[in-house]
Design a protein around this nucleic acid. Structure first.
Length: 552
RNA sequence: GCGCCCGUAGCUCAAUGGAUAGAGCAUCAGCCUUCUAAGCUGAGGGUUACUGGUUCGAGUCCAGUCGGGCGUACCA
């Protein structure tokens, strides 16, 4: 709806003889008394035209015209805004289109023909998922959903490493617990994984092999068991939240040599070396980032001969270019904040256009239980396990709470609030609006024979004209704007806010306007408006990945 | 020390550079013989951490100060 105004305003600028390179901005005033939409174009142009902004706005207004029946009123206000008031009939006609579009309402084509990859979660299989990972997982999943609504072909990717030092420590940890089961005295090292889940894995190995592995130092069985069991648990946890990846990219593939005896990792080193950015000292191979003005060089290959995480990260991104993605979105937690600048620098040196890489960083999660703030801890205890949180508050609340704050805000997850089955809980506020509409439609079918599934003539909407009806109809038209905005900012929180305000509009309408008990024609019109609201809520819930209950 | 994020009502958080800084919770006052009161209406509550700057206009952008978080590994 925002775009509706732009061509008319551009025409008015032309016929008023105003030339400007300033973009025409359409905004929605915070207070509806300043119109449904407004533009600040006169204030933007005032300086270069050397004219008073209000006077310029008046001049523009004289050249401005809209198709009959669309804009009811345009006026100059404040320091030089031009405010527009839509005609109620135009709003209701537009709501008809929502009913015609159905599930497709709000979808766009801006991503048509483009391929996007969203990388998220990407936890290595060393332990169960933590609450902190959950935030990034839900954020990534919602971003992928948003991309799909705009027509992108989306790959949801999980990047992981099942080799290297951490996995060895993991396998050793399991072996120690296994030896305990074999009733050998062991001194469990404090550097190893302390979690209870290690004992569970050891038990599985013990069940299968009894004491047969106790004599050998071989880690293979332990590593394999740990990886399989942990990965299954991670995937099961994600599945509970409706998170499913299309692609699991194993970092190990970047180490594998091809027929010419070189690997993707090695090719990165060679390419950077040919640009003069590789140095060797202290037995390690360095990316000479000091040449780019950074304080220190960064290790690419450790003196042990193993690559550090940076090298495969660079090689991994090159595969994204090779795989011809148009957009590459990485979702990281704040603890990985240092990871990407070097990767981007390396890619630039190698001639890649890094403009298509976007980084969405989410800040940390603290959990509040009964007023006590628990800081997320990485290793010990099970207080920060994502599975426990889902057990506690359910998948819908988990998802919504993770994205109802901006990703740059430190998230305070109030477990008590998320558990409440009451109006205090934002999840229930949204879902209640949907359930209320479903209940209303069931009642309408029973009382008046109106069948929401069969209705196909929406013209009755034009009969609606009261403020709460018009306001609700108008809110419905804003949905596509917020879907686009959420994607542009990589911030599903905008969609949460929108749906909250839409729910509020619906509850107000419901409160003020009798629906089934009104005149038959008005009843039908109000039911149509309710169906349209239900449709928009459903479309929005689908993006957020929360359920749309028919009854509560 | 350096880098990134944050600082807004008692609490949790909004506010694409726009008009009188908004919601929810909590507090107080109203609304169900009527479609889900898991709802609605209203009231009180603010020097947007601080100091400068940029401009028609700054919570928002820039510089600095103070406070908090996360990094600052030959961990990922």
């Amino acid at each position: 709806m925002h775009e509706f105004f732009i061509p008319f305003i551009s025409d008015a600028l032309k016929s008023a003889g105003i030339e400007t390179d300033k973009p025409v901005q359409i905004e929605q005033p915070a207070d509806r008394k300043f119109g449904d939409f407004s533009t600040n174009i006169a204030m933007l142009c005032a300086k270069e035209c050397r004219r008073n902004p209000r006077e310029l706005a008046g001049e523009l207004l004289r050249h401005l015209s809209f198709p009959a029946g669309t804009v009811a009123k345009s006026e100059v206000a404040g320091p030089g805004f031009i405010n527009f008031y839509l005609s109620p009939l135009f709003i209701m006609k537009s709501v008809e289109q929502i009913l015609l579009d159905g599930d497709a309402y709000g979808k766009g084509r801006s991503g048509a023909g483009q391929r996007a990859v969203v990388e998220y979660v990407s936890a290595n299989p060393t332990g169960p998922l933590t609450i902190g990972r959950g935030r990034g997982g839900v954020l990534g999943d919602c971003i992928a959903n948003l991309l799909e609504t705009q027509g992108y072909e989306v790959t949801r990717e999980y990047y992981y490493n099942d080799a290297g030092k951490q996995m060895t420590i993991l396998a050793e940890s399991v072996r120690y617990r296994y030896l305990e089961l074999c009733e050998q005295a062991v001194d469990f090292p404090p550097t190893h994984y302390q979690g209870e889940y290690i004992r569970d894995i050891a038990e599985v190995v013990f069940m299968e092999h009894s004491t047969a592995l106790a004599g050998s130092g071989e880690l293979g069985v332990f590593k394999e068991a740990a990886e399989t069991i942990i990965f299954n648990s991670i995937r099961a946890t994600l599945e509970r939240l409706g998170i499913r990846h299309d692609s699991f990219f194993n970092e190990h593939t970047l180490y594998i040599k091809d027929s010419e005896g070189t690997s993707p990792n090695q090719r990165v080193i060679d390419a950077l070396a040919s640009k003069g950015f590789i140095g060797n000292h202290e037995g390690a191979t360095w990316f000479m980032t000091t040449k780019l003005g950074q304080e220190k060089d960064k290790v690419l290959v450790k003196s042990s001969g193993e690559p550090s995480y940076r090298l495969p990260d660079i090689a991994y991104h090159i595969t994204k270019f090779d795989r011809k993605f148009d957009r590459m979105i990485n979702v990281f937690g704040a603890d990985h904040i240092d990871e990407y600048p070097d990767v981007l620098e390396a890619l630039k040196i190698l001639g890649y256009d890094t403009g298509c890489i976007e980084i969405a960083i989410n800040q940390f999660v603290t959990t509040t239980v009964e007023g006590q703030t628990l800081k997320m801890s990485t290793r010990k205890g099970n207080a920060d396990l994502l599975d426990d949180l889902i057990d506690d508050v359910g998948a819908d609340a988990t998802r919504l709470f993770f994205i109802m704050r901006g990703k740059d805000s430190h998230l305070n997850f109030d477990v008590e609030l998320a558990k409440k089955q009451s109006k205090d809980n934002p999840v229930f506020y949204l879902q209640y609006a949907h359930a209320r509409i479903c209940s209303l439609l069931r009642m309408a079918k029973q009382e008046t024979g109106f069948d929401a599934d069969l209705v196909n003539n929406y013209e009755g909407l034009s009969r609606l004209e009261s403020p709460s009806e018009i306001q609700l109809g108008f809110s419905l038209l804003e949905y596509p704007h917020w879907a686009r905005t959420s994607l542009r900012l990589l911030e599903p929180q905008k969609m949460v806010e929108y749906l909250h305000s839409l729910s509020e509009q619906y509850h107000r309408f419901y409160q003020e306007c009798p629906i089934i008990k009104a005149e038959p024609e008005i009843t039908e019109a109000r039911l149509l408006l309710s169906i349209a609201t239900r449709q928009v809520l459903r479309n929005g819930f689908r993006i957020l990945g929360i359920s749309a209950p028919e009854a509560m």
